[in-house]
Design a protein around this nucleic acid. Sequence first.
DNA 1: GTCTATAGCCAGATAGAC
DNA 2: GTCTATCTGGCTATAGAC
Lengths: 202, 202
Amino acid sequence: MSKVSFRDQVLRVREDAIVSSVNRLLAEKGFDQMTVDEVAADVGIAKASLYKHFVSKEALAGAAMQRVLDKALAEVERLGNDKAAPADAQLKAVARWAMHEQLAGEMPSLPTQNSALRAALAASTDYVDRLMQLSERLGDWIMAAQAAGRIAADLPPELVLYTLYARACDPVLAVLKSTGKYSDEQVVELVLRSWFDGLAAR
Amino acid sequence: MSKVSFRDQVLRVREDAIVSSVNRLLAEKGFDQMTVDEVAADVGIAKASLYKHFVSKEALAGAAMQRVLDKALAEVERLGNDKAAPADAQLKAVARWAMHEQLAGEMPSLPTQNSALRAALAASTDYVDRLMQLSERLGDWIMAAQAAGRIAADLPPELVLYTLYARACDPVLAVLKSTGKYSDEQVVELVLRSWFDGLAAR
DNA sequence: GTCTATAGCCAGATAGAC
DNA sequence: GTCTATCTGGCTATAGAC
């Protein structure tokens, strides 16, 4: 009994290492440019062994995307514990977290137009469930912020939600950082401010 | 003499048709998912014939990207003729134009992380020159809008420029449109407003 | 479950006739 | 310059020994 459990744990640790590699490579090069050979080399095992854990390249990416959503849900949960914080502060906080994840090379870009990966993700109930759960939690905050007069009430909540997701993968972060003029914190705060307050002078 | 000129013109028309196909396919599927076979089939010529006009897939994409910049420069030129318009209105107008181009399937997404294409583009002086020229024109408008108190003066002009480029390829447009709740005009105006005025209630 | 070796496929690019 | 046919390399996925 304990032997089996131990083996399972070893297995889980290995699969976690695989997913971490996939996550980083996905963030760095995207799904198409990432090769399974690279993943295997990065993890330090043979390619055939990878296919014992995940049935396809899409499944590899799917596991990584799923873990990203888990992390996001955990972060939302953590932030939600502060009942006193206003909803718009919560939204800013989660956006800040996501942007720092991206700058740290931990945020795979959205599979906006890849058919194979999109289809695989849409077919994964685990993935879709998590995405819906996250969207619901964020949607609650958005509507609360509108009710409190902190976000313009005539903006569709979905617009706010989609722009939040988009900020998590915003290429502007990397471009701004590549100028070398700003620290990671400054980059995040600049984009966060332009997202929330806009460009117009107040 | 006139014969040669006529032949040149036929050649130009054909190459223009090729670039149009590439542009649309690039917007639809992105560089990696687009295949040269598809382009050939779409244009209606053999693949080998394509390679008589363009030396590589990267060159194909480069020609399309270059034409996009030419169109943008023409649009900026056109808008610039209205000397009376305030600079922030010009910026909104060019953003509006770019977003409509995207919704019409005419705007290839930026090669954010593709190495082969990025390298080819960076090596093309024609492309880089156009991009710099466009950025200069837009940069002038941005600084003018800041001087006029229409854009927050403490935002780095480069941030405004990069977010403008990012809006031209913003995936939020397609997602909002896919809900079926908004017309193209409404989608554009919503994103434009959130870009310029932000989410926060005023 | 891990490995080496390889099958099978697909896409970019080219050869060579016309 | 256009075509058909082909080469070439790289990638996903698997076979089969241990």
